[in-house]
Design a protein around this nucleic acid. Structure first.
Length: 266
DNA sequence: GCGATTTGACCATT
DNA sequence: AATGGTCAAATCGC
């Protein structure tokens, strides 16, 4: 396939990817039952997997790939793994309803009206950009007039500053954006909604590592998750859904001892 | 007074 | 020339 056509198809797939993440946000924030949400999550996961697989195939035909996709939710393991060069930094896109609370502190340094967009684009850099020479930046742009409003957040460069206020982060987005380190849980999840095929996780403390940990920051964060549901579990991986962790595919790592005194098993 | 935000100007890229 | 990204002076709010 010639490159221009590949580029066109990639753009269409990118659009499909973003629309799917947008749809996910709408479902999560909508007034649906847990069962309906779980069904929607499963369909979304399949869609995102398909998008990723297609994009991987397309991009393997092209060398100048510059975009990496992220979403509010971690993806299921890729059917076609993407080999990424760790030395390169790609912008990461997130569609979210709450763009201002991702666990990091930002300073706004500009705002620009973008051609063809209703809402202006805001430019932020890390508060510690000067103190700690942290290069992290993000752009936030409202997507539409919907309720709730959705924002496209584009992250550029990783944080090199010391992670701040991990203990205080409350939302999945904050958790995700802290950098997908190792997370410990203090006990088993009260499994109120387990799909028939799911197996309960270990009852003692355990670590969770996000599936996409190869791109993680090197910091380690300690979190406790006190309630949630396991959507599915396969070998040492599972999909978790709980109040603090909207939905994520995780890898269980047995932990010999709690990493934090307050995280001992109940 | 100080730090954060706003906003017009400037610069680089296409 | 048009557009997007950044700078920096002015302004705001605590």
């Amino acid at each position: 396939m010639e490159n221009s056509l590949v580029d066109s198809v990639i753009r269409e797939m990118e659009q499909a990817f973003e629309l799917t993440t947008k749809l996910q946000s709408l479902v999560e924030l909508g007034n649906y039952s847990d069962t309906q949400k779980e069904s929607a999550r499963m369909v979304s996961r399949e869609l995102l997997q398909t998008c990723n697989a297609t994009l991987s195939m397309l991009k393997s035909r092209r060398t100048n790939v510059e975009i990496e996709y992220g979403s509010q939710y971690q993806l299921a393991p890729r059917k076609v793994p993407i080999r990424r060069d760790r030395r390169r930094h790609y912008p990461r896109k997130v569609v979210t309803a709450t763009p201002y609370s991702d666990g990091h502190q930002w300073r706004k340094y500009g705002e620009k009206k973008i051609n063809g967009c209703i809402f202006p684009r805001s430019y932020y850099r890390c508060t510690y950009s000067e103190d700690q020479r942290c290069e992290a930046k993000k752009q936030v742009q409202q997507q539409d007039r919907g309720v709730p409003s959705l924002f496209l957040v584009i992250y550029k460069e990783e944080h090199t500053c010391k992670p701040m206020a991990v203990e205080g982060c409350q939302s999945f987005e904050q958790l995700q954006l802290q950098g997908c380190g190792e997370y410990t849980c203090n006990t088993s999840f009260p499994l109120t909604q387990v799909t028939p095929s799911a197996t309960p996780p270990p009852v003692d403390s355990f670590s969770l590592r996000f599936d996409d940990s190869e791109d993680s920051l090197m910091s380690t964060a300690v979190r406790s998750i006190t309630e949630g549901t396991i959507a599915w579990r396969r070998n040492d991986k599972c999909s978790v859904s709980c109040s603090e962790l909207a939905s994520a595919d995780l890898e269980f790592l047995e932990s010999t001892e709690p990493l934090h005194p307050s995280l001992s098993a109940i």
